[in-house]
Amino acid sequence: MTGGGFLARNIAGFTQALESVVVTEDLCHAPGLMQGLDPRIKVVTLMLFIILVGLAQDFTLLIAIFILALLLVLLSKIPIALYLKRLLIFIPIFTAVIAIPALFITPGTPLLSIAGKAVITAQGAHTAGLLIMRVVDSLSLGLLLVFTTPWTKLLQALRWLRLPSLVVDILGMTYRYIYLLLHTANSMFLARQSRTIGGFSGTENRRWLGRALVTTMVKSQYLSEEVYLAMLSRGYQGEIHTLNELTLRRRDFIWMAFALAAISLMVWSIYL
């Protein structure tokens, strides 16, 4: 029976997501370098770095960006183990699996032959390496943003970047209720697990899953109506007004100067 495994797998997934929300929240308020920066500056500079990663065509630059990211992780007091765990899990491994065949099938100059049969080409090694480094770099920069910026500050930055306020409001509220529904779903699975002896058949599990999803959907619909009333009760009239308390400080300008200098230098190195 796969029943027990199915429940355990789902519970593990939900628990992990719940934990990651809590851990991220704690890190965002740690007294580190990036935490102290204005979210608008952070979003813009880190996005520029990520675009730069996309433009980069050689390893030196990609490795330089990786070292910079690593340095920022350390200065922002992000536990390196946690960072590496989030960085290396899934995506780079997945990318490596994707990249390996490219070593062999990319046509080009032979570099190395394994067992006299499969041939790794120089171009193959280059393309696979580029792909993996790019993924690692982009993810590092993304993690830096997420681990050092509370959701509400990120929303303020998006608002400042002229994302329609309706979309920002939806993003803000969605994240808040994801946590609640994760809990709801998790407790449904836990309740089923506690009643499970010997597991259920695949069909039974699928049916139960369908009903669990319907229950969650109905709950989300009910909540949306209630939340609407709660908003209305406190004066909401179709548009959420917010305080904009962001102010630039000296450190923001220092960081911005540094980041822009680094980015210009790197762009210059690409097109030289």
Binding site: F6, R9, N10, G13, F14, A17, L166, D169, I170, G172, M173, T174, R176, Y177, I178, L180, L181, L182, T184, A185, L209, A212, L213, T216, M217, S220, Q221, L223, S224, E225, V227, Y228, M231, L232, Y236, Q237, G238, I240
Partner: peptide, 21 residues
């Protein structure tokens, strides 16, 4: 006026749905 809560709660549901294994 219901746009924000309705879309937010449904999006949260979709997020959960995508997590189901």
């Amino acid at each position: 006026h219901r746009t924000v809560p309705a879309m937010a709660l449904f999006s949260a549901f979709i997020f959960i749905l995508m997590m189901f294994n």
